[in-house]
Amino acid sequence: MIGYIRVSDSKRADGESQREAIKAYAAKRGIQISDWIEEHVSATKTELSERKLSSLIISQQSIIVSDITRLGRHKVMELVGAIGQIASYGELHLAYNDTIINSENVDNAEIIFTVIGQSFASAVEAQKRSERAKAGHAKRKAKGLSSGRQKGQKVKSRLDEHTAFILNLLDTKTSKAEILRKLNERGVSITRSRFYSWLEDRGLHNKKAEFQTDMFQA
Rank of each mutant, 00 (worst) to 15 (best):
S189E: 15
N102T: 06
G84A: 05
A218C: 04
R6D: 06
S62Y: 09
D214T: 12
A126N: 12
V7T: 10
K23N: 06
E47W: 04
G187N: 07
V115D: 00
Q127H: 09
N105K: 12
I63K: 01
E20V: 14
R158F: 12
S119Q: 02
S10A: 12
K182A: 07
S49F: 07
D98T: 00
I2Q: 01
S157R: 10
T163F: 07
A43Q: 05
Y196P: 02
S175L: 03
V41A: 10
K134A: 15
G3K: 05
K28Y: 05
K128I: 09
A82I: 02
G84L: 05
S59R: 08
A95V: 03
A26W: 03
N168Q: 12
E47N: 14
T114N: 13
I33T: 01
I2T: 09
L167A: 04
R70L: 10
I57W: 00
R19S: 00
T46F: 11
S146V: 03
Q217I: 13
E200Q: 13
I68E: 05
G203N: 08
K139L: 08
Q32G: 05
D171K: 11
V106F: 11
Y25S: 08
L180S: 04
Q118D: 13
V124E: 06
K75D: 11
I190L: 07
E210T: 15
K75H: 08
F113L: 15
Q61M: 09
Y25V: 01
I63P: 03
M77A: 09
I58V: 10
A138K: 15
I100P: 01
I57S: 08
I63G: 10
I116L: 13
I83R: 05
R132W: 10
F216L: 10
K182T: 05
A26C: 10
I64T: 07
T114Q: 14
Y25I: 04
H40T: 00
E110Q: 06
L159M: 04
D201E: 15
E200G: 09
Q212T: 14
G72D: 00
L170K: 05
S119N: 01
G117V: 01
D171L: 07
D98V: 10
V188N: 05
A121C: 07
R202Q: 15
D160H: 11
N168F: 14
M215N: 14
I31H: 09
T174C: 11
G136V: 06
A95R: 00
I166W: 02
G90M: 03
V124S: 15
L92F: 01
K23G: 06
S34D: 14
K154F: 02
K45A: 11
E38Y: 04
G15V: 01
D14T: 12
S130V: 03
H93F: 09
T46N: 15
T213G: 03
E131C: 00
I2S: 01
Y4A: 10
I83V: 04
F165S: 00
K11H: 06
Q127F: 12
K207N: 12
K143C: 00
R194F: 11
T46P: 02
E50P: 00
S146G: 12
V76G: 03
E39L: 06
N184C: 01
V80Q: 09
K52L: 10
I58Y: 08
L199G: 06
Q150N: 08
